[in-house]
Design a protein around this nucleic acid. Structure first.
Lengths: 103, 103
DNA sequence: TCGATATTTCTAGTTTTATCGAAATAAAAG
DNA sequence: CTTTTATTTCGATAAAACTAGAAATATCGA
């Protein structure tokens, strides 16, 4: 996991609008949802929504696949899981233990 | 976990400079580190660093405690863990299972 | 082909954010 | 009480993000 990739991901999650979109897609699971449905559920105008989904896709948090007239969006669960694990990955690696400090 | 609290947290993590600060504190563990040491390790100018740490503290990712002339910064591990878990918390809750769809 | 539907790109205005030098504040040392 | 050290606040500027209407693109159906 590159640090730039990680911060792109967190940055993409850091907007309330985008996080709402992401949560809807996470709940939807592998089936995903078309952009239009996401727009209905969130109330975000189409052009704004397209902007946010583009942002999420650029961070590899969401994948888009055209299906006829609609575009199906799916959360990238592998990457989301990797990001979740990355936050505390090297937790306490540099910590001076009490034992070590006493020695 | 409030959604605003979650997005504040991810937004705070979403800057490369701030994530670098956070990672250093996560590695440092419960001992924490003074602001000055973080500045030395990251190379971020003091005023810029103060701004970023304030941002991290506002999102409750970092706690600051004055100790004499220095200010000790510590990662808020409980909150970081909660955020990590929140990403996929309701994963697939709305998913239409294949079985369900067939019925 | 023409019209309806779904979504994106363009464009622009407004709001946030990032950066960092200089000045201010806080605490310890001399 | 003055100086040194550690950190923050102020102020100004530049860069980026958020928002959303209007126009463009893509697909399907009649």
């Amino acid at each position: 996991m590159d640090i730039a990739l990680a911060t792109d991901g967190f940055s993409a999650m850091g907007s309330p609008s985008r996080f709402a979109v992401l949560q809807i897609l996470v709940k939807a699971g592998q089936d995903g949802l078309p952009t239009g449905v996401i727009g209905e559920r969130t109330g975000i105008p189409a052009s704004t929504l397209a902007h946010h989904i583009k942002f999420l896709a650029a961070a590899d948090l969401v994948q888009q696949e055209r299906q006829g007239r609609t575009i199906l969006c799916r959360a990238n669960f592998d990457h989301l899981e990797a990001l979740a694990g990355y936050i505390l990955k090297e937790c306490c690696a540099d910590q001076t233990s009490i034992k070590e400090a006493a020695a």
